[in-house]
Amino acid sequence: MTTIYHNPACGTSRNTLAMIRNSGEEPVVIEYLQHPPSRETLVKLIQDAGLAVREAIRQKGTPYAELGLDNPALTDEQLLDAMLAHPILINRPFVVTSKGTRLCRPSEAVLEILAHPQKGTFIKEDGELVINAEGQRVASGK
């Protein structure tokens, strides 16, 4: 079973969800802004993805600066408190599969942990071809 912590307003999150579906799987979709993870779940997502807490915080379009979260003296516990109080600070999308957990930025990172190959062509919202008609990954031109 695959789970995506999704923000439908985020293009990266939408592209990631579409790639999961392009593999023939319908994931559990958790819109984390409406249904934030518990502290325990958030800690597990971050640890399982091999990230430091600070690496899992989204800065752009969030109250990151206003809350002073760039202060290097803040502890992981304080950063987690902020993420739980303001779920928009949780970077996205986190995806959990039987093959691992990833923060899928860029969205193609999800390909590393999907249980099934892509079923056909996949083009990101910005027009970038990621998967060709044979279901093979295409080298990024970026």
Rank of each mutant, 00 (worst) to 15 (best):
A139P: 01
H35S: 14
L89C: 09
T12L: 09
A18S: 13
E25H: 08
E55I: 02
A73S: 15
I30T: 10
F94T: 07
E134N: 13
A133N: 12
E66M: 09
P87S: 09
T12M: 08
S140G: 11
P87R: 04
V29E: 00
E134H: 11
N91V: 05
T3W: 02
S98M: 02
F122H: 08
L17C: 10
I123F: 01
E128T: 15
P27S: 11
P87M: 06
P36L: 08
L129M: 13
P27D: 10
H35N: 15
K60A: 13
K60P: 00
Y64D: 05
H35K: 14
Y32F: 14
G11D: 10
A85Y: 04
Y5S: 03
M1P: 13
P36Q: 10
H116A: 15
A9E: 13
Y64A: 04
P37F: 06
I20K: 02
P37S: 09
L17M: 09
I46A: 02
D81N: 14
T97F: 07
A65D: 14
E25Q: 15
A82F: 06
L51A: 04
R14P: 03
S23Q: 03
M83H: 02
G24D: 09
E40N: 06
E77I: 03
G50R: 08
I46R: 02
I123N: 00
E31I: 00
A18H: 03
H35E: 13
Q118E: 11
R92D: 01
N71Q: 07
V29N: 00
G141A: 13
M1L: 11
P106L: 06
I113L: 12
H86G: 00
G100W: 12
G100T: 11
E40I: 04
S13M: 12
K119Y: 01
T16H: 03
A133C: 01
E26G: 03
L80D: 04
E31Q: 12
V29P: 00
S98Q: 14
Q78A: 13
R102I: 15
I90S: 02
I57R: 01
L51D: 03
R14S: 05
E77Y: 04
P37V: 07
E108T: 15
I90Y: 01
K124C: 08
N22G: 04
D48M: 02
V138A: 11
R14F: 06
A65S: 12
A82V: 06
G24S: 09
P37L: 07
P63Q: 08
R58M: 09
I30C: 05
P106S: 10
T121I: 14
K99I: 02
C10K: 02
L42Y: 03
K142N: 12
A109T: 14
T12V: 08
S98G: 14
A52N: 12
V138P: 07
T75N: 08
R102C: 06
G61A: 11
E66P: 01
L80Q: 05
E25L: 13
E31A: 02
G141S: 14
L114N: 05
L89D: 04
S107F: 05
L67S: 10
V53F: 04
S23M: 01
E25F: 01
L80Y: 11
V28I: 12
L111D: 03
G141T: 13
R58G: 08
N71P: 05
L51Q: 05
H6S: 04
Y64R: 03
D126N: 15
T16F: 03
L129H: 13
Q47E: 13
E128A: 15
M1Y: 10
N132P: 03
